[in-house]
Amino acid sequence: MAEPVLQFRDVAFAWPDAAPLLSGLNLSVAPGECLALVGRNGAGKSTLFKLACGLLKPAAGQVTVGGLDTAQARAPQLARQVALMFQEAERQICHDQVEAEVAFAPRLAGLDASELALKVARALELTGLAGRARCHPFDLNAGERRLLTLAALIAQDTPLILLDEPTRDFDAAQLACFEAWLTLARSEGRALLFISHDLDFIARHASRVLHLDGGAIVADGPSCRVLLHPALQAPDALPAPTLPALCQALGLPPTADADAFDAAWLARLRG
């Protein structure tokens, strides 16, 4: 098996003057995996992400990213291995122009001017922000601002990418743009970890789902199994992910893929 891009070994963490938030946490992520992290509010999902990229150090145990121990590695080394999309886009943006923001990480990594320009242009192209390169980030709408933080991650070009509630600010068109990038990033062999409350989105993309509760991972497996936990489901509604549940109710082969469902539905209706 390939060397994991991210590994937690018996990790514990607590905020000062508070009960332990995470304890005895073990986790291993292989290259090319797409993992979703779910759990109730305040379960420690965002904290787990900050531990995974070295912004927080574990109180006990060890976190390694691309073979680097986060407790010892310096920020410049870690930033080449892992990129994080913060929960609040506003708290991540460091520059007063879209272009400069996207160029921030690769410039720090010491890329030469032509390479840098190429990388920034590609990131802006993929996120549909090419026309807004000279804007102030605060003049963008919430969805565009989120796409800007995505463009910055694309330019950072790391094998592991952590996304904290990435889809929240997107409207339908922006979501489609994001999902296209997600598919591309997976095809490039990057490992992706995301926190989301959108169970349909998880079912469409995650190869594996982790359920975090009470400071530990209580379930780890395919979305069709892990997401059915009652704590994650809205009461008196179709169980989520909704498309496989609909398939089941209609006696169609279960799928989370829109095209597959449409074909199956049409066949059923005609046949």
Partner: peptide, 16 residues
């Protein structure tokens, strides 16, 4: 604190 966190995530060595 937020700024130095955002910087560190991009590779600024805040301990330097």
């Amino acid at each position: 604190a937020a700024v130095s966190e955002a910087q560190a995530a991009r590779g600024v060595d805040v301990a330097a």
